[in-house]
């Protein structure tokens, strides 16, 4: 799953996967601006089949934050 997240992020940011890790956050990645953030949310929702509630979108700071939604979904 981590790999899939990195793959999506790499595509959205146009940054090589080697330069990303699950710990990467908004402060590390120059390309992670506000529009890329929306794009990232949209791609993750679509490709991982998860839903990130409106209120929580601003709280996503690093790639590992996406894992939570996936885990929640699996625990259902």
């Amino acid at each position: 799953m981590e790999d899939k997240i990195l793959e999506i992020a790499s595509k959205v940011f146009g940054v090589s996967k080697d330069n990303l890790s699950i710990e990467s956050n908004r402060d590390d990645i120059h390309e992670w601006d506000s529009l890329a953030h929306l794009n990232l949310i949209a791609e993750m929702e679509e490709q991982l089949n998860i839903t990130i509630p409106f209120e929580e979108i601003g709280n996503i700071r690093s790639l590992k934050d996406f894992l939570r939604y996936f885990d929640e979904k699996n625990n259902d």
């Binding site: 506000s34 529009l35 929306l38 949209a42 791609e43 679509e46 409106f54 979108i57």
Partner: peptide
């Protein structure tokens, strides 16, 4: 369309 992206960033369309 995407309501979420519209409210968040004024983007009308979904990723798709």
């Amino acid at each position: 369309y995407s309501k979420k992206l519209w409210y968040l960033g004024g983007l009308k369309y979904s990723n798709m």
